[in-house]
Write a protein that binds this DNA or RNA. Structure first.
Lengths: 191, 191
DNA sequence: CTTTTAGATGAATAAAAATTCATCTAAATT
DNA sequence: AATTTAGATGAATTTTTATTCATCTAAAAG
């Protein structure tokens, strides 16, 4: 027998992400996906039961991918600021490099397909960061502001950086990232 | 002759915004819009040539609506911090109250329909704020950071507040808004 | 009050998109 | 090398969705 080609699956995912970025989830047809992934439409149905299953699978994959990156090189033992900086950089780099994935997650969350569990899973990805913020507050290093809103402040800035890098085709040097981190840090640090 | 019913147009817009919020642009059909707006499908085509025209018209309307709110009560003569606070509050309130519109703009920008002019118009909405930021830098009140990134920092935080208010059904008191403003302000103010 | 004109309706039609399937490979097994 | 099994194809089919249109109002004009 002929085995399933893992490359095909990847090609389908890549095609989806590219198309969602340029056309939106609303603009995607299975024909387009097949063409973009250089295969016959029927082949899509060997790898995925139907369009819904494809969207769901890709959403899960993207959410997991986020999870695998957020806390890379982070140790809960590190000093607060160093640990926070590590996570901040991880998130911003991931959002920039895999912007299409972030966009896809956002759009699929507003599609008729995605389950509440998946949405919850994404939210839970940030739990270790919430823990760290609590520690920072306990240690009086950062302001005593509800973590829910502080996280909004942190993540919001990061998201918008990624958006602008991609929409306006801007380059971000390490220098620019550090400047942006400084804005965030000065915002949260205790007075 | 019977005149066009302005209420119908509004009903169509309202239906669209509601549906995009819960289903995404990908999940919308003209049948659904008609049902939600309590009219026959054919009636939609009296007010809009086709689906594309409807999306385009609503996008323009939303973009204009943003423009009409951002600088309400703002005077370029006000002291820097007061002026900035006015604009910040205007934006955050608008994003919270008309979250569905923001969402619709975002999604329609990724549809196959919306023109570059419309996208540019949205961007231009922020020009007076860019001007103010430049003034703040000249007066050494805020950090000397590229306005492009400073705006990302400011807008990003605001967007995420609105998102969380709506997705997690959180109430925001004036108190919460002021706390959030403080984070932003401490971020941008000169050291 | 009658006529005219354009809005409103929703079933019928057309267009677009998802999904299937008969047929054709290519890889693995014997 | 022959056989078997499952992947790959894309035209054909089914399903869904957009759009039209014959018919029916309701408002304005005369």
């Amino acid at each position: 027998m002929k085995p399933k080609d893992q490359n095909k699956m990847e090609a389908i995912y890549r095609a989806m992400l590219g198309l969602v970025r340029q056309r939106g989830l609303a603009g995607i047809t299975m024909q387009q996906v097949a063409r973009e992934a250089k295969m016959a439409t029927g082949t899509l149905y060997i790898y995925f039961k139907n369009k819904e299953a494809l969207v769901v699978a890709l959403t899960d994959k993207c959410v997991q991918h986020v999870a695998s990156n957020l806390f890379r090189n982070y140790s809960a033992d590190a000093p607060f600021k160093a640990g926070f900086a590590t996570i901040w950089m991880n998130i911003v780099r991931h959002r920039i490099e895999f912007f299409n994935e972030s966009l896809f997650i956002e759009q699929s969350f507003h599609s008729p397909f995605v389950s509440d569990e998946t949405k919850l899973a994404l939210k839970k990805n940030f739990d270790p960061l919430l823990l760290l913020l609590q520690r920072g507050k306990d240690e009086k290093i950062i302001k005593d502001v509800d973590s829910f809103w502080m996280l909004a402040f942190i993540i919001g800035g990061i998201n918008e950086i990624a958006r602008r890098v991609n929409y306006f085709n801007r380059k971000v040097s390490q220098q620019v990232l550090e400047t942006n981190f400084q804005l965030c840090w000065d915002g949260i640090k205790a007075a």
